[in-house]
């Protein structure tokens, strides 16, 4: 059993180090992206960004992506835990109402702060 625990612990450390490295690269990429396209991401006819309070756990935030993706108007959902934001991309010519977005966020157990452009 000790041998198994050692193997599992070694695998865990390897995953941790690689994941941390990947996260750093992703953050760097994110800064570049933010600088060049902030206006587009904030709030346009086809995209919006929602500020969410309490969204600290990726496992618990799965309900946000699941419930937004079930809406026919939504094409894609991205969750940014660093900024506590949810980015929504809508299908052409469509958008969710503010009330519906708030309903989904609060239904997932978090506080809806508002759209970033507000």
């Amino acid at each position: 059993m000790k041998t198994w625990m050692f193997i599992i612990l070694s695998a865990f450390i390897s995953i941790s180090l690689q994941a941390e490295d990947a996260h750093k690269h992703h953050k760097n990429d994110g800064h570049k992206h933010e600088g060049s396209t902030a206006e587009v991401v904030s709030s346009t006819a086809t995209e919006t960004t929602i500020k969410v309070k309490g969204m600290v756990c990726a496992f618990c935030a799965q309900g946000i992506t699941k419930n937004f993706k079930s809406e026919k108007e939504v094409e894609d959902v991205k969750v940014d835990l660093d900024k506590m934001e949810v980015h929504l991309r809508f299908k052409k010519g469509q958008k969710l109402s503010r009330a519906k977005m708030k309903e989904i966020i609060t239904g997932a157990g978090f506080d809806f702060v508002g759209e970033v452009s507000e």
Partner: peptide, 12 residues
């Protein structure tokens, strides 16, 4: 958490 992962990453 030994590192902070993205939403779509592996969390440990």
């Amino acid at each position: 958490a030994p590192y902070v992962a993205d939403f779509e990453g592996i969390h440990s």
